[in-house]
Design a protein around this nucleic acid. Structure first.
Length: 682
DNA sequence: GGGAAAAGGTCAGATG
DNA sequence: CATCTGACCTTTTCCC
């Protein structure tokens, strides 16, 4: 139906970029996107009546130029996906910049028409769409959704119009022993599951976020015996209901983790991951050595370096000539450590003026030392995974015994490296500088091509996204994919960290920073995200709302600069491993572990780091002071990252946040959003 | 202020 | 013939 489109001689090149919606010759920038007259008119009409649109073709309608029958909903979704919006209206004459950009774009498109198709496919398969296609389910049709890449992502839907959203059911296929493995819509049977843990659906245990949807969940649970994953939702016609309750219902029902969300707090605290999968027997927790450097003290002033080692038992005051000088400060620190080592009695003073040494601590876990050996510490050469055996006969853990364990610093360092190689490297990999550079350049090129082809693909307003998702199941701007990938990798990260260091009661973002900082490039504005995918600046700034854009840009800039400063430290792999151990043992936790002993062990780790530095540098304390300074700054950066994550509404759009492990680790961050945050667009 | 470009309106034509 | 599309036109906006 409709007026015949104007026939265009393909040989005649348009002086405007083609329509991003249908590919027809463009007529200019309409609603923020280069489109043809037809799509402009369509979008204009749709603004008033889009809520009436329905798709009769299960979302498969192709949007192509010249087609006589187009689905309104799919076409409108396509318009939104390419970035058309009322807010993007720009009237008036083109600036010369815009005109030049258009001309360049046309030229590039002509030149790379063939090349870009091949290149884009390759990049998407390698970087942008790592999930690939989803497995189909019996009696299902597949339909396509417009993804962030502008390509079509298959999502499954069954014959009665119900969505299975396989995309949301995948859960860490790469993990050797996933906490919960979704396989063919079944939870992997684990000892915990066999015992009934996690499986029982109890509405009394629904998390806070879901409490308002008890009825919805009851319906869902009633139809979900066992794990509830077979229940797929019927589409609801009523628009208002769709926009509210159904969004959350669909999100929840599409999550393989729904049953886990019913886990009681007691069960959460005894997660299998903490009970069964931790292979590192020795190291527990926790204290961090932190040095606060006073940067506003004049170089010539005199200050004090003070410590409160071992909970108020240490005391030291050292005069510094030049607090800004790492040399002087580190010299002072050297004296400090030396004195501490020499002096068995440590008294405490505090001086906020210059530096605060918070002691180092590490608790030992006697319960995980099943094999008593004559030596306090040893590496089992037979086991590829390192084993540290602790003399379990020694139930009386004294500072002396800890000192004995840490006597051989090279052995401790080798042990930590073995731990790193068996836990972190398999997860995060290890790239050379050349590989990092090559991947960064490839990703930046892929993003550039994507922007050329599909425009900025900016974030939809939440209410529009919610409506589209509930009515069609389309993850229009890929926010769920991004956040779920990120969430899943957060779990992976925590697993690796837990494997490295047992019994960590909360998360430590700094730990992650010291794994990935080498993959950050300030100049190129690119980094490797939580989901281990390369991300450039515009991708990172996409998800927070426009109102937060400026503050997030500043936060990101600070983070990139910080990572650059870490690179300038030129840390060796061995040094990095020990630093990670120090971070993981941070003392500022709600539940400090065995303070005096733990701090002693942390202290010994600090000495390990100094020991390592002394092998490379004539004055290791200079470097040590810089490292400590960066550790302090890492904490500040962590706060920024957490704020950033919170603003991304991960709890709303990422089902993985119903994973009890993540909920435990990040609950305070993602599940305490105030209503103002929520009310923004809903 | 002229002119370029987009928004919005109009209506001929296509279609069921 | 009712409905809808899309080419074309007018109005508005704003760059130069």
């Amino acid at each position: 139906m409709g007026r015949k489109r104007k026939q265009v001689d393909p040989g005649v090149a348009s002086n405007l970029p083609p329509c991003r919606v249908c590919g027809a010759p463009g007529s200019g920038l309409h609603y923020g996107v280069n489109t043809c007259e037809a799509c402009k008119g369509f979008f204009h009409r749709s603004l008033k009546i889009w809520t009436q649109y329905k798709c009769d073709m299960t979302g498969q309608c192709p949007v192509e130029p010249g087609r006589s029958k187009l689905c309104h909903l799919c076409r409108y979704n396509r318009c939104l996906a390419v970035g058309m919006a009322k807010e993007a209206i720009k009237t008036g004459r083109y600036t010369s910049t815009k005109r030049t950009k258009d001309i360049l774009e046309i030229r590039q498109l002509q030149e790379k028409q063939t090349l870009s198709a091949v290149s884009l496919d390759r990049h998407i398969s390698e970087h942008l769409s790592p999930t690939g296609t989803f497995s189909t389910i019996d009696n299902e049709q597949s339909f396509s959704s417009v993804s962030q890449t502008g390509m079509f992502t298959p999502v499954s839907r069954n014959t009665s119009g119900q969505f299975s959203l396989e995309s949301m059911l995948k859960f860490n296929p790469e993990l050797s022993e996933p906490l919960i493995h979704h396989d063919q819509l079944r939870l992997k049977e684990t000892p915990s599951l066999r015992e009934g843990r996690f499986v029982e659906a109890n509405t009394d245990k629904i998390p806070h976020d879901c409490a308002t949807n008890n009825q919805i969940q009851k319906t869902h649970l009633d139809s979900s015996p066992g794990h509830g994953l077979e229940s797929l939702l019927s589409l609801e016609e009523d628009t208002e209901l769709l926009q509210g309750q159904q969004l959350q219902q669909q999100l929840l029902s599409s999550s393989s983790l729904t049953p886990l969300s019913m886990t009681s707090p007691e069960e959460i605290t005894s997660l299998p991951i903490l009970e069964e999968e931790v292979s590192m027997p020795l190291i527990a927790c926790s204290s961090i050595a932190s040095v606060s450097l006073s940067s506003n003290t004049s170089p010539s002033s005199t200050g004090q370096l003070s410590g409160n080692m071992l909970e108020g038992t240490a005391s030291m005051s050292i005069s510094l000539c030049s607090p800004r000088s790492h040399e002087s400060l580190s010299d002072a620190y050297g004296m400090y450590t030396t004195t501490l080592l020499q002096s068995p009695s440590r008294t405490s003073t505090t001086s906020p003026k210059l530096a605060t040494m918070s002691p180092v601590c590490l608790a030992v876990a006697p319960s995980v030392a099943p094999s008593a050996t004559s030596s306090l510490l040893q590496i089992d050469p037979q086991d590829s995974e390192f084993v540290i055996a602790i003399d379990s006969c020694s139930t009386d853990w004294s500072i002396d015994s800890v000192s004995k364990i840490y006597k051989d610093k090279d052995l401790i360092i080798r042990t930590l490296i073995a731990a790193d190689e068996s836990s972190l490297i398999p997860v995060f990999g290890q790239m050379t500088d050349e590989e990092i550079l090559q991947q960064q350049l490839e990703h930046l090129e892929a993003c550039r091509l994507k922007r050329e082809m599909f425009g900025p693909l900016t974030k939809l307003p939440d209410h529009e996204y919610d409506y589209i998702f509930v009515t069609t199941g389309l993850d229009t701007d890929d926010r769920q994919k991004l956040l779920n990938d990120m969430g899943e990798c957060l779990e992976k990260m925590i697993r690796a960290m837990v494997k490295f260091c047992k019994a960590i009661p909360d998360s430590r973002q700094e730990f992650y920073i010291f794994i990935t900082y080498k993959c950050v490039d300030y100049e190129k504005k690119i980094l490797r995200g939580f989901d281990l995918q390369w991300k450039c600046e515009n991708e990172l700034l996409k998800l927070p709302s426009a109102a937060d854009a400026r503050i997030h840009a500043e936060t990101l800039d600070g983070y990139l600069k910080f990572c650059q400063s870490l690179r300038s430290l030129n840390l060796s792999y061995n040094e990095l491993v020990v630093i990670r151990a120090l971070i993981a043992m941070a003392p500022d936790r709600d539940k400090p572990v065995n303070s005096a002993l733990a701090r002693e062990i942390h202290w010994q780790l600090t000495l390990c780091l100094i020991h390592l530095l002394s092998q490379r540098y004539p004055n290791p304390f200079s470097v040590f002071a810089r490292i400590m300074d960066r550790l302090t700054e890492a904490r500040t950066q962590t706060e920024g990252v957490i704020y950033f994550l919170k603003k991304m509404k991960m709890d709303k759009y990422s089902h993985v946040m119903y994973n009890p492990l993540l909920k435990e680790m990040f609950g305070g961050i993602f599940f305490n959003n105030d209503e103002d945050d929520w009310g923004e667009n809903v």
